[in-house]
Amino acid sequence: MMLKKHAIVAATLALAALSAQAHDLWFKPSSTVLSKSDWVTVDAAVSNDVFFFNHRPLGLENVKITGPDGSAVEMKNAHKGELRSVFDFKPEKPGTYRVTMLMNGVMGGYKDANGQPKRVRGSAEEILKQIPADAKDVNITENVRRMETFVSVGKPTGIALTGKGLELKPVTHPNDLVSSEEAKFEFQIDGKPAANLEVELVADGIRYRDGVEPLKFKTDANGLLTVKFPRAGLYWLSTDAKDNKTTVAKATERRLGYVATLEVLP
């Protein structure tokens, strides 16, 4: 019963996050590169501007922290404020730690017997129950999104991919980024290179400049992206895609998203 309750809560929170796609979701770690074991504090929010608290806190129920060996790392001092959430964790062993939030859900729409448009959200099972038998123009969409950031103690270690959805496969490790050097990333969809994917990078400090000033790129035929960051600092990386490779019955479209916070050193 408790597991079922947790699943319902997780699905509700994931759908709430998906409904906030008009806003930016992000993690902001206090540090991503450590020479020895130490505490890391992470801010998490949904905002109108990247890294600027001006909308609402991000729910932490779906956030997971994994260590270099894939084991779970405990989140400490989690707190949800009015504009942001915050939590701590302490990487104890050398290697790369991963802070991840998965946001999977289903949404749909149809026209009722009177021709009025209706929208539905929930699990695939719930949505199918909500759509009447005489509905017209039924449209169901599966959403699969991932948000993450990385913290390394000492030498960075490899990052395992799931082979599901839209993911970043490091060529240059996310904790080995330097402003004076080119970085390479490979993007994959379901384990295969994602060609011609539009990727956006936004530097921290939007509040103190005239505009967002995003950097826009596109992956090549092999899903590779080459970037030379203009300066050191935190960057918000975002990309999305869509296809018809759904895993949900009667869904005709799958929308994929990936967001990461990267720290670039001088």
Rank of each mutant, 00 (worst) to 15 (best):
L3N: 13
H6A: 08
V9R: 09
T12Q: 13
L13N: 07
D24N: 11
L25T: 11
W26E: 14
K28E: 14
P29S: 14
D38C: 07
A44S: 10
V46M: 13
F51P: 12
F52P: 09
N54T: 15
N54E: 14
P57M: 08
L58T: 08
L60N: 04
E61N: 06
N62S: 06
K64Y: 03
T66S: 15
P68M: 12
P68Q: 01
P68G: 04
D69S: 06
S71A: 14
V73Y: 12
E74F: 02
N77T: 01
E82N: 13
V86N: 11
D88S: 02
K93C: 01
P94W: 14
R98F: 05
R98M: 09
G105R: 01
K111F: 14
K118I: 05
R121T: 05
E125S: 04
I131K: 05
A133M: 10
D134G: 03
D137Q: 11
N139R: 03
I140L: 02
R146F: 07
E148K: 01
S152A: 12
L166P: 12
L166M: 10
E167Y: 07
H173C: 07
D176I: 01
V178Y: 15
S180T: 13
K184V: 15
E186F: 07
F187D: 02
F187A: 03
Q188D: 00
A195W: 04
N196K: 06
E198G: 01
R207E: 15
R207A: 15
Y208G: 00
D210R: 13
E213M: 08
L215Y: 14
F217A: 09
T219W: 00
L237F: 11
D240E: 10
A241G: 07
D243A: 12
N244Y: 05
R254I: 12
G257H: 08
G257L: 08
Y258T: 14
A260N: 10
E263L: 07
